[in-house]
Design a protein around this nucleic acid. Structure first.
Lengths: 207, 207, 207, 207
DNA sequence: TATGAATGAGTGTTCATTCAT
DNA sequence: TATGAATGAACACTCATTCAT
């Protein structure tokens, strides 16, 4: 009976440490960017030796991918658990997704998603797993966009690819960060305006 | 009297070389990204010694800032020389600006502008001069946005700051790069759709 | 009375494990070389924790020395148990030693012996114990060489030190490894030729 | 007129520096072995910064190969310039080669040749150029060995491959280093005995 | 002024060794 | 006693920056 407990304790500690590393890595990356984030700095901030970092993640790339993947998984899970009803408009569903992406206080999540979506900026070769998760998220959005077109909510003349891309770029908090940081707007305020612009912009035009 | 001429000749040569360096730097940065652009490569491509590069730009950062500044100056000048008439709608003026930003075949300009506007991507602290140019560009856009509001073209309920920010993020080719590169859309096609979304989105709503 | 038994049981287990470690270490070293053999890999292959390895051998070097020592001991024992009769020629006795050194299918033994004899290849300072064993082996060979000289079999004009050194370097399978691996000769064939060269070479010249 | 001079001066300095690096690298490798030779140590011993080392040799491997190649070239050139006459016995020619290999005071050359000939010990993948030089050296020896067989000097029953391999392993000073270093023999003395053993050993037997 | 050789701090990664449990 | 997580010194290699010529 003790061995399993012991193991699970160790395993728990391991996961906690891993979580801490991921959290710190994320902070540093958001602060300094991918290339300026050094394994040295992550280790120092976590308060462990550099070698210990490598017990958890064999390569810098793996660490980076791990936290991207983790964030995306969280988003995907929340999106898939959204309580959608038949009566909800496509816009309402998409707004729910936007809210999820902006939910966390710092907007980190959406930043990461945006970064990933424009992943060519990184010299990271996304692994298949991450690409899959990413694909599943964007497929969900795509499905709602097409549903909206079918229902006559959205303009059918705009290709869904373009709607999809605009959805992620327009609604990314990254794109609007300056407004919170320097101009004193609240997240909610900005989000509300930007959503308004986007959904009006893609709405089906009265003939 | 000769000295000044001599100086101005030298000065002219100096400026020509500087121009060449900036052009090359821009190419390399757009090709490889900021971090993967080395002073060695720039010097080699220009055909001068590395030391000579440092006679023109004391730091890598300065070189980068200089070519951002140069691009912005070009944009600013074109914007300021736009033939605007009283009858032109604010939207038409803004569309003209968007066209300038996307004018060059490769979309380099707008990429650079966007990059700068989100300058935290770079470890660059913009110098006062660059900030001024940037400010003047965005002031022009801001003026047209407010003109549009005053004329009843744009929704007065959305703060101009937010419109301004959306203008730059939505219309940046960077945000839509994937669509050209991977999905096979043409620049013109994407630009047209995205403009449509944006201007519909910010249009004054019928009461 | 129980304690000693207990101890000797433990001791026996300890020795068995030590034997296993040495066996594994030897395999890995012959497979990958000294520098590319990691304590991690040895522990993993043995199926114990790395810390446990260090309970048996305080340093990597100690482990390496231990298995050299062990191999040399085996060789020494076999050499000392050789059924030598008065009628046997010195050459026959030396050939028996060569055969022992090459006996195991893979030539591991002789490789190890050669490596040790040229121990500068390793950053290993041989411990006294190993040096003793080594000395006893080479003394045996030296004795037979001198016996051969005394009997008129070998050329008395060549110093025994030089004969001894040539014996080990000429007859080392390491020196001839290429011939098996790349040229397709059999061990037996090469060994036979090399022995012929050596014993002819050191034979007493007809006056 | 000045430019060429200037260039050749710089070039000369460059070559001198390179020579110095190679000399130091060789010393360190012979002292510590390939794996224990660090670029840091080489740079420190030469008295230059680590970066400077990389101006001359892009990779550690390149540096190592460069000095192997250089030594082999020297040997090859000397071998090819040997004054051989039709009357010289094959043995005399081979002895001349052995002398070349042992010529330099320290015996470094032959050590390097031996190391290379057993190059599987190194994780170096020999470049084609080095392999060619090596091949040309051993071809020369092989030719003399076969000439000796044809002339009835050497035993035709021993395959030339085996003779060749024995030539290099037996006559390598590496194999006999102990005798100089610890036993007090002179190089000449050892060399003479070892040659005697080898050439007697391979001599054609009276039928 | 122009050069490019030289610098050295910094990077990701490995691995023998230690030590709390 | 046995574990394996943690350590940190060491390594090969890069590149912005300097400086003697």
């Amino acid at each position: 009976m003790k061995v399993p407990e012991h193991r699970s304790l160790k395993e728990k500690q391991r996961l906690e440490r891993e979580e801490l590393i991921l959290q710190v890595a994320q902070d540093v990356v958001l602060e300094k960017g991918y290339r300026d984030t050094s394994m040295d700095e992550i280790a120092a901030r976590v308060g462990i030796a550099k070698g210990t970092l490598y017990l958890h993640f064999a390569r810098k790339e793996d660490l980076m991918l791990a936290f991207f993947e983790r964030e995306m998984q969280k988003i995907l899970q929340t999106i898939e658990q959204l309580p959608v009803t038949a009566e909800m408009s496509a816009r309402a569903k998409l707004e729910a997704i936007v809210n999820i992406m902006h939910k966390d206080a710092s907007g980190k999540r959406a930043n990461l998603l945006f970064i990933l979506f424009n992943s060519e900026d990184f010299k990271i070769t996304l692994q298949q797993k991450s690409l899959d998760t990413l694909r599943r998220i964007s497929d969900k959005v795509r499905a709602y966009l097409e549903e909206g077109k079918a229902r006559g909510e959205f303009d059918p003349n705009i290709p869904t690819d373009i709607l999809l891309n605009s959805f992620f770029s327009v609604l990314s908090p990254r794109a609007h960060r300056r407004l919170f940081l320097e101009e004193g707007y609240t997240r909610q305020e900005v989000l509300s305006c930007v959503q308004k612009i986007f959904f009006r912009g893609i709405a089906k035009q009265p003939s």
